[in-house]
Simulated assay, not measured.
Amino acid sequence: MRKVILALLSFLLIFSSFGCSPKETKLTNLTKVTLMLDWTPNTNHTGIYVALDKGYFKERNLDVTVVQPSEVWPEQAVSGGKADFGISFQESLTQYVVNEGAPLVAISAILQHDTSGLIWLKDSGITSPKDFANKTYGGWGSAWENAIVDYVAKENGVDPSTIKKVELGVFDQITGLQKKVYDFTWVYYGWEGIDAELRGLKFDFYSLRDHIKNFDHYTPIFITSKSMIENHPEIVKAFVEAISQGYTYAAKNPDEAAKILLKYAPELDKNLVMKSQEWISPYYLDESGCFGVMKESIFRNFTDLMYNLGIIKSKVNDVNTLFTNEFLPCKK
Rank of each mutant, 00 (worst) to 15 (best):
W120N: 08
K263T: 12
L8Y: 00
D195P: 03
K3R: 05
T25V: 13
D216N: 08
F203Q: 01
V158R: 09
Q277M: 14
V319G: 08
G193W: 04
A257C: 06
I243N: 07
G141R: 03
Q68L: 10
V67Y: 10
E24G: 12
T34Q: 14
Y137F: 13
M274G: 04
Q76T: 10
M1C: 01
E230M: 04
L37W: 11
R2I: 14
S276E: 15
I260Q: 05
T94G: 09
F57L: 10
K165M: 07
F205Y: 13
S297F: 10
E256F: 04
Y284W: 07
G246I: 02
Y182D: 02
A106L: 04
F302R: 00
K259L: 14
N146G: 15
V4Y: 00
S161F: 05
T185A: 00
S10L: 14
K259E: 13
G176N: 04
S225T: 01
M228Q: 12
A242F: 15
V152P: 14
W73V: 14
A242E: 10
Y218P: 01
M294L: 09
V187G: 01
E278K: 15
N99V: 06
F203N: 03
V78I: 10
K313C: 13
A133K: 05
V240F: 07
I14A: 12
V72D: 08
G19L: 06
N308I: 00
E24T: 11
N320W: 06
Q95E: 15
E100P: 02
G289P: 06
G246E: 01
F205H: 01
D38I: 14
L309A: 08
K130W: 12
D318I: 08
G289C: 05
V66P: 06
E192W: 09
E59L: 10
I107Q: 11
Y247A: 04
G138E: 09
A196P: 04
I174D: 06
D123W: 12
D172C: 01
A109P: 13
A257E: 03
V181C: 01
G289H: 08
L262M: 01
G80R: 13
I221T: 00
F222Y: 09
M306A: 09
M306F: 07
E100W: 08
A196Y: 01
A51P: 13
V166D: 11
S297P: 08
L52M: 07
P129Q: 02
